[in-house]
Computed example of a mutant assay.
Amino acid sequence: MPYIKKTWRTGRVEEVEKFFSRRTHTQGAARGPKKEKTSEAMMAINEKNAENKLRRLMNTNFGHRDPYITLTYARKNEPPEPEAAVANVKKFKNDVRRLCKKNGAEFKFIESSEWKGVRPHHHMVINIGNMDDRVLDDLWPHGRIKHQYLDDTGQYGELAAYFIKVSRKAFRDPESPCRKRWTASRNLVKPEPKVEIIRADSWKKEPKARQGFIIEKDRCFEGYHDFTGYPYQFYSMRKACNKKE
């Protein structure tokens, strides 16, 4: 009764997902309660999958001291409609790309915008090489740019979840001018999992970190899959910080 093991290596973070599938002969595997696939449940699953994808994308492509910026609008410059906000942030990204090219740097970004029920603003995680991110202030004439920076953990799951949250209303609005949870530059590395078929007797309820890593206890789950009812496990481990780093 083998199970499927998927392993994602994303920067300093490694994630492991273990589950049974009908393709792996589930006879004899103890099942938990199988839940009904309601529209609300499917919506929650889709949002969680989007968060997982974005987290892995962030962890793979960005790291310590990379800028996390928020583009805001002065009240007098607030765009009259969402389409104008979409055009503004698109022009900003094009201007940054040209500036990076001029300075021999590669521009990487993930961006998520919020404009439903609030004053529009745009969140971006970026990499602009060795350039000082404060040079970007002159490229945004509509208001201020708030500058923050990623920490050294390599785990940016909370930020990914926030990006998904702020885009939720616009994503679900059929009249939204940009029904995307986020946009990203094409030059990002897209992590793919290593897939293995493992003997069932190797399944351990307590995950063990490989050498040099520590288990992220708040990112571990042991139980049953919501829809299949078969045993399911997910855990995340992070590379231990080296004091010399």
Rank of each mutant, 00 (worst) to 15 (best):
N46E: 01
I45F: 13
P174L: 09
F213Q: 07
L150K: 02
K165T: 02
E216H: 11
R9V: 10
E222G: 10
G28N: 06
K108I: 08
I215E: 11
E78N: 13
P120M: 07
T7N: 13
R31W: 05
M42R: 15
A30Q: 03
E192P: 05
E196I: 15
A29D: 04
V16D: 09
E51P: 00
A44F: 09
Y235I: 02
T60W: 04
V13P: 08
T70Q: 10
I69D: 14
I4G: 04
R75S: 11
I164N: 08
T10N: 05
T153Q: 02
T70S: 12
R172M: 15
M131C: 12
K146D: 08
H121V: 01
G11Q: 08
V118C: 06
Y230E: 06
K116Y: 05
D132Q: 14
I164T: 05
A87V: 08
E196G: 10
K6H: 07
T24K: 03
F221L: 08
A161I: 01
Y149C: 07
R172W: 15
R23K: 15
M1Y: 09
R75V: 12
R98E: 10
V89S: 08
R22G: 14
T10P: 03
I164Y: 06
E158I: 15
E245F: 15
R181T: 02
F227G: 02
Q27R: 14
K48C: 10
P177M: 14
K146C: 11
E83N: 01
I110H: 02
T10A: 12
R97I: 05
Y3S: 11
N88W: 01
T38K: 00
I4N: 06
D152W: 13
E114D: 06
K243H: 14
I214L: 11
F213N: 08
R168P: 04
P82F: 00
E17I: 08
W140S: 01
A85H: 05
Y162I: 01
L150F: 04
P67W: 06
F213T: 09
M43T: 06
K116D: 06
L188D: 02
R65N: 13
A29F: 03
I198H: 09
R75M: 11
E14V: 14
F163V: 07
S202M: 02
A74W: 14
G11C: 07
S112H: 03
E206F: 04
R238Q: 05
R12H: 07
F92M: 06
R97V: 03
G129I: 03
L139P: 00
R210C: 01
G154S: 04
G63C: 05
D138C: 09
K180A: 13
R181V: 00
R22D: 06
R9Q: 09
W115N: 08
V16C: 09
G129Q: 10
M237N: 02
E17A: 07
P79H: 04
F107K: 01
I197P: 03
N127H: 13
E245V: 15
T7R: 13
E114L: 01
I198D: 11
R98L: 13
A184R: 14
E81H: 05
R210V: 05
D66R: 02
V96P: 05
P2V: 00
E40I: 10
A74I: 12
E111R: 05
K34C: 15
W203N: 08
L71F: 12
Q148I: 12
A74Q: 10
M58T: 11
C241V: 04
R186N: 04
E111H: 10
I164W: 06
